[in-house]
Nucleic acid binder design. Structure first.
Lengths: 211, 211
DNA sequence: TGTACATCAGTGAACGCGCGTTCACTGATGTAC
DNA sequence: TGTACATCAGTGAACGCGCGTTCACTGATGTAC
């Protein structure tokens, strides 16, 4: 049965949204197309009217997830609205660690994306580059780093540590919840130092940054 | 056909070794038991004489991979034999990034381990804890960090950044090999700074550390 | 040391199952007149 | 505005396939005597 253009576009968007959540939560290999379609309120055959393959859907779902999580937020608010302190507080938080389905797709899927095709690598690269540039801009305002090259270097390392910190905190969580909390807090603290936060800044920084 | 105890033990070890390599290379969901057994020179049914399930094999393969890669190396040589400089040079290297099957299982599988059961989380936790303690010992000898608590905090952040750095470098590699190299070098450099390496130490550090 | 036999690691066919994808069909949409 | 009909998003059965696991069987091992 044919459907209005609007309804078809909404169905396509529902597929991408469902895929973005399910792929983060259980991995690309861990979710079947039938479940994605069901979650979007469609039957499994419908997917192929909108996407060439599960892989094509995965690439689009990754792009969607990047735009809707921390990466997209920095693009909207990054230049002046977000400080490094507020950004690190939001990313390196237990709430983010516990929100696999809605959190940063880079943290959720970093190691499995290494095994996917170039289209998916390109989406990841784009998201990573955007977050690095946003961090570099944040460093600019508070920086201890003198040159732009040094700021970029620090931004790259901070982005890698954020992703690794959340991924590691999730990996140890079932067996060692104490260690998981410790990782989140330690990475938060040390990256603040790397980014030029004062050694004991939390009360001041929170007051001057939030609200 | 029955087989000598020695041969049975060797077959079991071959299964673990093959699984450790294949799981890192293609993910736990990405490899079937038939391929693991074939790679170990056995038929697929043989696995269940040695392991309760694929999952049990995965836990043992993870433990094996941790012992045989960087984590195990620090246990053998860590206390005095390895400096932070040498350790970071080895871990944050293009050779490690390109050796998915033989490299650190935490970098290879961090994000998918968050989705596995507690036994696998426990193995990851154990490996992570060991590498953090090794880094903390390395920091002890060169430290800018005064207290033990600060040293542990830094060690946790360094470990997370190492894992995230290699995972991100692999994820962007197909689409952006230039960015991949840049990530590896930037994380290497910044973690050296965090660990107390001098600002422009490479020549000196290399001379005093290696050989 | 030689013989009889229980053990059990490994074989390979078979199990049910869910996978990604295809395809003939449906029927409301939306265009042409 | 009203009618005829081509379009095509979505349906659901079916495709071949590989998955993890089971199981009856094999036959060399290694133990008991």
């Amino acid at each position: 049965m044919k459907v209005t253009k609007e309804k078809a576009a909404a169905n396509r968007a529902a597929l991408v949204r469902a895929a973005a959540r399910l792929f983060r939560e259980r991995g690309i290999d861990g979710v079947g197309v039938a479940e994605i379609c069901k979650s979007a309120g469609l039957t499994h055959g419908a997917l192929y009217a909108q996407f060439a393959s599960k892989e094509a859907l995965a690439a689009e779902a990754l792009a969607y997830g990047l735009d809707r999580s921390f990466v997209g937020l920095t693009a909207v608010k990054g230049d002046r609205g977000t400080t490094l302190t507020a950004f690190l507080d939001a990313y390196l938080a237990p709430q983010h660690r516990d929100d696999l389905a809605g959190g940063c797709p880079m943290a959720a899927s970093a190691s499995e994306i290494a095994r996917q095709d170039e289209a998916i690598s390109a989406q990841f690269s784009d998201g990573f580059e955007r977050i690095v540039e946003a961090i570099q801009r944040m460093l600019g305002t508070t920086a201890t780093t003198a040159s732009a090259a040094a700021a970029r270097q620090h931004a790259l390392a901070i982005a890698a540590a954020m992703i690794g910190g959340i991924a590691a905190a999730r990996a140890v969580r079932k067996a060692r919840p104490d260690l998981s909390d410790e990782i989140v807090m330690a990475v938060r603290q040390v990256l603040g130092e790397v980014g030029g936060e004062a050694a004991i800044p939390r009360a001041d920084a929170a007051a001057s940054t939030h609200g």
